[in-house]
Design a protein around this nucleic acid. Structure first.
Length: 525
RNA sequence: GGGGCGGUAGCUCAGCCGGUUAGAGCAGAGGACUCAUAAUCCUUGGGUCGCGGGUUCAAGUCCCGCCCGCCCUACCA
């Protein structure tokens, strides 16, 4: 068992009815980078993702497509969602589906406990029902009628009058957790991040909490309530429980104890479910609340929120087909601050790819490796007497590594990358100033040349390690070209928190050929 | 209506508890160099810090009002 402290992080689970777009992929990548970082730093890491497959919408689509809901979701998972993970190079440790038997049985155990302990009761639910939509309408889809329907409430979609219907429902006594939740937000100010998200949650809970209807009986695509199988569990409760059912709640207590609690990375649109309903459910069940809930921002395209309904949705593969998964990961993690909305544009993506990945990092690796091969037949020389400029490089590496780790600790992935990129910039400047090509022309400067190239190569070694959580494919190529696998082991095994310690690259390793890490893309959009 | 967040160079953004001539990256202009992916390095032009008041010796940075954008104000995943 890894010795490090536990780090369990989850992504939102995908509602399989959607088509994957870069918004989904963005959240996945963010969680993946954090997980890879912690994993490589030696923490006892677990990254969970998965799919949310119940609910009326899925039942409807499946039926419309002439399939059973299970056939339909199996197909979507196989054709759209599993492939997405490959597309963006995820390193998830598990993938849970809410249709998994392990999930359903654990959900039943959880909900039975709440029921047995008196947190669930039966009551009439009165709501405005739209015959056209065949469902109860939320406040946001109810309008005041005019014309012939003046004085009545009408459906925002169909424009027809709504009927007041009663339905027997089971309710969760969420209202009694209001104070506990407020205390939680107060005692742990970083429970909900960023602060703007926290403000909204606190404001919401302060207004007062109502009990939550947690069952539906108008359709059957869901998990039946153990004590009343004519009802299925409300999809959101079903979905939230994935975070504990996946790690053995009710089935493998040792593993559950080892992993829980988790950090939840979620889009800010579903923040409330995670920061209010979810902790309330956990409190009721006598479990620990999450370690934290981090709300990510929207991706803006052309200044507007990217959405599935509008045509601004972009498939991740559209980007990776041209730029590759590393560039996808790098771009979204570098250009956007995790908790804020971020602008996406093809121009910006292409510009950063060219300037930062190709000309910055890629070319640096290329020129250093080429010089070691040209001037020392590929054998990394031992460093000679060290000068101030060399020490400055070592100091930059140490500072960058420390700053990056601290930033990751705060979920500030973009700051971590910016910190590491200092090394790229400093190293490019160092090489240009030291002019190894000039030193190479003078036999008496042989020792100096060795020192300069060792310094540059050692800098690359640190970069490979520090960037491996973000651009795993490119750094693996670099690691292989540096020829250190035999001496230091695999890249993924390099202790991340030691990456900044100078001099780990052993002299004498043989550098191999290095293909362009990020080839120029002339057809940039 | 109530609340939150944001409005800083062409673009994307930093600017913590108020303090010297407001910063970075990219884009633009000029120069150096050749190891490298026509890459790199240096220099450089460019901003009424949304608008109007106020507090202060001093405000992008605090207070008030206003304008603009996005979001929340419960049971759609």
């Amino acid at each position: 068992m890894p010795a490090g402290r536990p780090f369990y992080i989850t992504t939102p689970i995908f509602y399989v009815n959607d088509v994957p777009h870069i918004g989904h992929a963005y959240a996945e990548v963010a969680a993946d980078v954090l997980a890879r970082w912690h994993r490589q730093a030696g923490d006892d890491t677990w990254l969970l993702t998965g799919t949310d497959e119940h609910g009326q919408k899925i039942l409807r689509t499946a039926t419309a497509n002439g399939a059973t809901p299970k056939e339909w979701t199996d197909r979507l998972v196989a054709e759209a969602w599993h492939p997405l993970l490959k597309t963006i190079d995820m390193s998830n440790d598990d993938f849970i589906r809410t249709t998994d038997e392990r999930h359903e049985s654990a959900v039943k155990a959880f909900i039975s406990k709440l029921h047995d302990d008196g947190f669930i009761y039966e009551a009439e639910y009165g709501g405005l029902y739209c015959v056209g939509c065949e469902e109860f309408k939320p406040e946001s889809e109810i309008l005041d009628g005019d014309g012939e329907f003046a004085g009545q409430k009408v459906c925002a979609i169909h424009g027809r009058p709504l009927e007041l219907l009663q339905e027997k429902n089971y309710f969760f006594r969420m209202s009694q957790f209001q104070q506990q939740l407020l205390d939680l937000y107060k005692e742990r100010p970083d429970f909900v991040q960023p602060e703007s998200a926290r403000n909204e949650v606190v404001a919401f809970v302060s207004q007062g909490l109502q009990d939550l209807s947690i069952s539906r009986s108008t359709f059957d695509w869901g998990i039946p309530l153990p004590w009343d199988e004519s009802h299925v569990l409300y999809v959101w409760v079903d979905a939230l429980l994935n975070y504990i059912t996946a790690i053995g709640y009710g089935a493998d207590s040792a593993n559950f104890e080892r992993r829980w609690p988790a950090y939840h990375l979620v889009g800010k649109d579903i923040l409330r479910f995670h920061a209010v309903i979810w902790p309330a459910l956990l409190l009721a069940a006598g479990l620990e609340v999450p370690a934290g809930v981090f709300g990510t921002g929207w991706l803006l395209v052309g200044g507007e929120k990217m959405s599935k309904s509008k045509l601004t949705g972009i498939a991740p593969s559209e980007i990776t087909d041209t730029f590759g998964s590393d560039a996808f990961r790098y771009y979204f993690m570098r250009a956007i601050s995790l908790g804020q909305d971020g602008s996406f544009s093809w121009e910006d993506l292409a510009a950063r790819y060219q300037a930062e990945l190709a000309n910055g990092f890629g070319n640096l690796a290329s020129r250093v490796v080429a010089m070691v091969r040209r001037y020392f037949d590929g054998v990394v020389p031992a460093s000679g007497a060290v000068q101030a400029a060399d020490e400055a490089v070592a100091a930059t590496v140490a500072a960058a590594a420390a700053a990056a780790d601290a930033a990751i600790e705060r979920f500030a992935v973009h700051e971590a990358i910016a910190a590491v990129w200092e090394i790229v910039d400093v190293l490019n400047g160092y090489v240009t100033e030291q002019e190894p090509w000039a030193l190479a022309k003078d036999e008496t400067q042989r020792d100096r040349l060795a020192t300069v190239l060792y310094t540059a190569a050692e800098g690359l070694r640190a970069l490979a390690v520090l960037l491996s959580p973000v651009i795993p494919k490119a750094t693996t190529k670099l690691w292989s070209a540096l020829g250190v696998e035999g001496a230091l082991g695999a890249l993924a095994a390099q202790p991340l928190r030691d990456a900044g310690r100078w001099g780990r690259l052993p002299a004498g390793v043989v550098v191999g050929e290095l293909e362009a890490l990020f080839p120029r893309i002339d057809d940039a959009r």
